[in-house]
Design a protein around this nucleic acid. Sequence first.
DNA 1: CCATCATGGTTTCATCTGTAACCATTTGCA
DNA 2: TGCAAATGGTTACAGATGAAACCATGATGG
Lengths: 154, 154
Amino acid sequence: MPAGRHPDHAPLELERFVPYQLSIVSNTVSQAIADDYQARHDLGVTEWRVMAVLARFDGLSAREVAERTAMDKVAVSRALARLVAAGRVRRHTHASDKRRSVLGLTAAGWKIHDEVAPMARQRERELLARLEPGEQAWLRRILDKLMGEIEAER
Amino acid sequence: MPAGRHPDHAPLELERFVPYQLSIVSNTVSQAIADDYQARHDLGVTEWRVMAVLARFDGLSAREVAERTAMDKVAVSRALARLVAAGRVRRHTHASDKRRSVLGLTAAGWKIHDEVAPMARQRERELLARLEPGEQAWLRRILDKLMGEIEAER
DNA sequence: CCATCATGGTTTCATCTGTAACCATTTGCA
DNA sequence: TGCAAATGGTTACAGATGAAACCATGATGG
């Protein structure tokens, strides 16, 4: 038996353990993307996600943003506070329900969005380019499926 | 054009954006596993990773643990402080280099390891069970490949 | 040798994140 | 109506995390 091994205890092989692999790959990719815009635009990951969702769906409430970003409402609230202060998101109160806010990107917000979105897409392409076409298709299919399962359970 | 859409700006579809999908899937799975042991054993994710690595490789230094867990040395230092205090890891000084520590699980550490490792494996099986056998094989292949690329670049 | 640089590891501080408590408004229903 | 429960959102606090400064030991080169 090789020194330092403990086969009786069946230790986990971390680097082949799927949840661990997912964590490493995900963090590495996200970090690479975030590095692109964090310094340049003083924009956090959470803020970017909020902007991305408001770019697609104008007029959402904070709660709806939270749903679509899979962030909790506290995180959304904080991200919005910064975005509004920076003049990137406009917020006004819903006409018939004074609790709700009605959110959308400002012109400044769109400007940043239109710079960051292509960069993000480029990073995604770079990631996928490391895989063969068949693998790319399988990865998309698998992630779509798992996302669906997660969605369904929530 | 549907209300609330802005096709001119080509907004990102977050839920089909691979880095975002990876992040959601990874966090969901990791959280599910962590929930299993955090409350029960008062054990954080970082601490568990350190334990898992020491279960496989006895006698590592803190720096080597950091390498194998992809954690930075500060995180490892903190995890070790807690683990040693809790009597789960033994630490003594390297005979010929007083800077290095020599780490390993104690009996108590092994006991926890032997409870947690099968739970973690079970969670991995549950994740994979959501996929068809072909998809499982592709996912493993893809993750192995991406892990290799990441490793190589560091 | 001894001054300098590199390495292993810890501490400090500032920031981020999550949980729970909270406030205001709206809804449901007796 | 009007009062309890639910909802949208913010604030307060505590624990986690990361970058940089730090301390001790070891390696290197004149």
